[in-house]
Design a protein around this nucleic acid. Structure first.
Length: 593
RNA sequence: GGGGCGGUAGUUCAAUUGGUUAGAGCACUGGCCUGUCACGCCAGAAGUUGCGGGUUCGAAUCCCGUCCGCCCCGCCA
């Protein structure tokens, strides 16, 4: 920096400092060389301000400024001046003032940037990822990562105020039999054996409760080797927390405080409290998923009953096969053209594995236009009308299939069409708790499986149902949902070994397998485990929702591509044979190039 | 694993559908310019058309394979 000592950031320069000498440092956002006078927009992390180099102010600085190029790094000593009336630029902040340069230090040159460092660089995302350094210089990413920092801090502060202890857990850990595919790390000293990276610190935090810490949290990196999505990365960050001697209500109160504080501190948003609550069943019935955006003013209706007695074979067949029939009614839907319905059908068939798309349009004269109306009796039509509140202008969209598929297809259409038709409440934020999840669900072979994970405790009054009707047993599980995104989930855990064994038994584990996979953990419970429960926020996703983007890569400094590569570091990469040899590893199949 | 869209100069796009030397804006380089703020004007450089193979007199264009980016399904909480 030589003799230059930065005195101000760009955003600190205002008309209050007229005639003050300042020293600024940053990057050349843009240079406008008029020969006699040179303008440089100087950018630092706080903003941009115009620096003017005039020969009459400093011929030396002016001469040096001629060599400046985009992204050169510099320090400038100068005096803040009002601009003359006719040169004021009202389109930019600080457009009424400028820095008249007295001295210039070139701190570094820069290769030409691959794209303009602007809010909208207009380039393909792969280019941005390859040149992530330049990408990160852009305003939106600087803002997003700063938001993420404030969010993390707000959460950490809130947990600290609530007497949580931050404890780290291992990154090199043990492969778990359940859940997602593990990332594996070869163990050099045990040839042929592998550590696994944690999918979450779930077991560890329960052990910490058993060990008596009572309140634990961790900003934990987690790893799941599954295919990615816009809102799913291979490695991601959880705000993981667990507490002892609590009921569900205690945890929900804390989660509400954390979520509320996070939104306030990171984004200046004051969420309405208390958060609305909705049961899993209610959510599935009305919205078709367990993370509804309730601002969207469309709701599903159930017509399983009607079609179970109907002569419409296609739909009745779905019901007889154990499925359901639901409808997404859209009233005043004249703007959806016939062609659009066909496109919707193509979309759900191709992208969502739908068998088809049933629809009925109620014309202005009350008549029904539909490919399926000829299969419907007057009685059917009356019932459909009543349940869906159909009236002239209504478009009814049907799905008849398995429960899971009907709901996933219609919930997707609900969101897509609700947004497209602007059937959205004008609130910006929609937080809620989803409660009363079932403890178990059936997999495709009608086998009982856990819904979230095998350690979730049942609701106390449902414990007797474990014997008689396990599918009806409610879990102590809860989700926090914001704007249709699941921010995280948690539950009370089984702290008694006998109950945990019973549940594992219902999940189909024989004694021997149970012992082999969970013996260590079951014995841990039997050392005096306190009642405990917790939660894990998906921090990346929380930041993403607050940043108003729909892509995690916008809130992660160095994200992976959909194929799991880091285009900047070019990871993963091949490893020399000698290294592999140390690890007792031989590669069976190499990617062809 | 599957489906869809895409890959041409640093970058964003074009190339009359198989036909001469693959063009343009921005960026870049050089020159001129004392009030711009997406400065302007003049000139210039810049290409393994993702990669490999094939068809053809001739391929950015057609065919096969492959790699890469994004979105989705499966998968994953």
């Amino acid at each position: 920096m030589g003799d230059f000592e930065r005195s101000h950031s760009c955003d600190a320069i205002s008309a209050n400092l007229i005639d003050h000498e300042v020293v600024l440092a940053g990057w050349v956002q843009r240079r406008r060389d008029h020969g006699g006078v040179i303008f440089v927009d100087l950018r630092d992390r706080t903003g941009v301000i115009q620096v003017v180099f005039r020969p009459d102010a400093s011929s030396k600085a002016h001469a040096r400024a001629g060599a400046l190029r985009s992204e050169f790094v510099l320090a400038v000593r100068g005096v803040i001046k009002h601009r003359s009336e006719e040169t004021i630029n009202l389109d930019i902040p600080n457009g009424d003032i400028e820095v008249v340069a007295a001295d210039l230090a070139l701190l570094n040159t820069a290769s030409p940037p691959p794209f303009a460092i602007e809010d909208d660089p207009g380039v393909d995302e792969s280019v941005r990822l390859q040149h992530r350094i330049h990408d990160l210089r852009r305003g939106p990413l600087q803002k997003n990562l700063s938001l993420r920092h404030r969010l993390t801090k707000a959460i950490r502060d809130t947990l600290c105020e609530n007497e949580f202890t931050e404890i780290e857990t291992p990154i090199l850990t043990k492969s778990t039999p359940e859940g997602a595919r593990d990332f594996l790390v070869p163990a050099r000293q045990q040839p042929g054996e592998f550590y696994a990276l944690p999918q979450s610190p779930q077991l560890m935090k329960q052990l910490l409760m058993i060990a008596g810490f009572e309140r634990y949290f961790q900003i934990a990196r987690c790893f799941r080797d599954e295919d990615q999505r816009a809102d799913r990365q291979l490695e991601f960050t959880q705000v993981d927390l667990e507490m002892s001697f609590v009921k569900v209500e205690n945890i929900l109160k804390l989660l509400e405080e954390i979520t509320w504080k996070g939104c306030l501190e990171a984004k200046g948003v004051e969420l309405q409290r208390p958060f609305p609550r909705i049961s899993y069943q209610d959510s599935m019935d009305r919205f078709g998923n367990d993370r509804p955006d309730t601002r969207i003013q469309l709701e599903l209706t159930d017509l399983t009953e009607v079609f179970s007695k109907s002569d419409f074979r296609a739909f009745r067949g779905a019901v007889e096969a154990g499925g359901i029939v639901k409808c997404l009614p859209i009233h005043n839907a004249d703007e959806i053209s016939r062609g659009e319905i066909d496109r919707l059908e193509g979309f759900v068939k191709k992208e969502l594995n739908a068998r088809g798309l049933g629809w009925i349009r109620v014309a202005a004269d009350g008549s029904w236009q539909s490919p399926i109306v000829k299969f419907l009796s007057e009685n059917d039509k009356e019932n459909i009308s009543r349940i869906t509140s159909a009236s002239p202008g209504s478009l009814l969209i049907f799905q008849a299939d398995t429960n899971a598929r009907v709901n996933s297809i219609l919930s997707r259409l609900r969101v897509d069409l609700g947004r497209r038709l602007r059937r959205v409440e004008p609130r910006d934020w929609d937080p809620l708790f989803v409660l009363d999840f079932p403890l178990f669900e059936e997999d495709e072979d009608q086998k009982l499986t856990y819904m979230h994970m095998p350690f979730v405790a049942p609701v106390e009054e449902d414990i007797s149902l474990l014997e008689t009707d396990p599918k009806a047993v409610r879990a102590t599980h809860y989700d926090v949902v914001l704007n249709g995104y699941e921010l995280g989930s948690g539950s009370l855990r089984n702290h008694r070994g006998d109950l945990q064994r019973k549940i594992l038994g219902l999940l189909g584990y024989e004694t021997e397998e149970m012992e082999q996979k969970f013996g260590f953990f079951l014995r841990s419970l039997e050392t005096g485990a306190p009642p405990h429960g917790g939660f894990a926020f998906g921090l990346d996703r929380f930041a993403m929702v607050l940043a108003g983007t729909d892509n995690l890569r916008d809130v992660i400094a160095f994200p992976k591509t959909q194929r799991g590569q880091d285009l900047l570091l070019e990871a993963p990469s091949e490893i020399p044979f000698t290294l592999l040899d140390d690890l007792a590893i031989r590669v069976a199949k190499r990617k062809r190039n």
